[in-house]
Design a protein around this nucleic acid. Sequence first.
DNA 1: TATATTCCCTACCAATTTAATAGGAATAAT
DNA 2: ATTATTCCTATTAAATTGGTAGGGAATATA
Lengths: 147, 147
Amino acid sequence: MMRLSTKGRYGTRLMLDLAIHYDNGLVLLKDIAKRQELSEGYLEHLVPLLKSAGLIISSRGARGGYKLAKTPSEITIKEIVTALEGTLSPSECINTPSICQRADFCITRDVWKELEEKILQTLESMTLKDIVDKYEDKIKNSVTYNI
Amino acid sequence: MMRLSTKGRYGTRLMLDLAIHYDNGLVLLKDIAKRQELSEGYLEHLVPLLKSAGLIISSRGARGGYKLAKTPSEITIKEIVTALEGTLSPSECINTPSICQRADFCITRDVWKELEEKILQTLESMTLKDIVDKYEDKIKNSVTYNI
DNA sequence: TATATTCCCTACCAATTTAATAGGAATAAT
DNA sequence: ATTATTCCTATTAAATTGGTAGGGAATATA
Ligand code: FES
Ligand code: FES
């Protein structure tokens, strides 16, 4: 089904939540979980991946929390999703040809390779700021309609 | 991991094998399985999907087999993969918003939607003929090197 | 007609992956 | 010392994946 796992999807929502609250200082994981209606316990598993990719910064203890390691315009969705999912390759053998004896003369190799490149290109062209801006426009417009 | 399942990957190899032998009349599934080093029993599960999508034609009984329902240049990888995988959506809620209460104000919806569109665009631009031609060039060149 | 060959269909199954939960250790502020 | 928070490890239930097994139905040919 070529679906992104919840790691990638929930983790992106986590990062977008941090982007929305970028000016508020440290943000609690508990609050992100509440706003995004996600399990805090599960989000805890994603945080180390984002941290070691240099995308977020954390502070422990009382008054601790998380914040983005760069400004929202400097973080692309590609960085986020690859940090969380490892690779976006439609087929394992693309990145690790050694696992496949057929790699040299495999007829589909180029197909999946090209697809992976397009996926990465697409996600690289989107920054957190882009998404947040679009989202805030949408919310504003929907409020107008409700008047 | 956003990987295509074996349905999509093996099924594409099956279709490319049929494309390579397009002028040879009916092709046995047994032979496809042997050439592609795939389990015949498993391929049997993919065949109905390709058939009901109008991509292959079958003939039962002795001297039966499979062939493409259209010429290789008329069949795109998008048709094949969507027939096999159902949807290529990175997130379920894109195609079925009803399953998700957050759909209306979901901040990531547009991201996955745009990604799905790019994926479909990419796969639609590739026909079986394109891939086979590239493959045969590659084989020819590698033979030349071996002389 | 009998037989061999091939596609077709259903049921089952083992292994892996996914999406969590649980319990506590480390760290920082008050 | 107490409280709030991140961090780490282990466990697990459910779902998905990638098959296998066995037989039935259709067709060509002898
Ligand atoms: S490279 Fe492994 S099957 Fe194509
Ligand atoms: S539409 Fe369902 S979570 Fe985004």
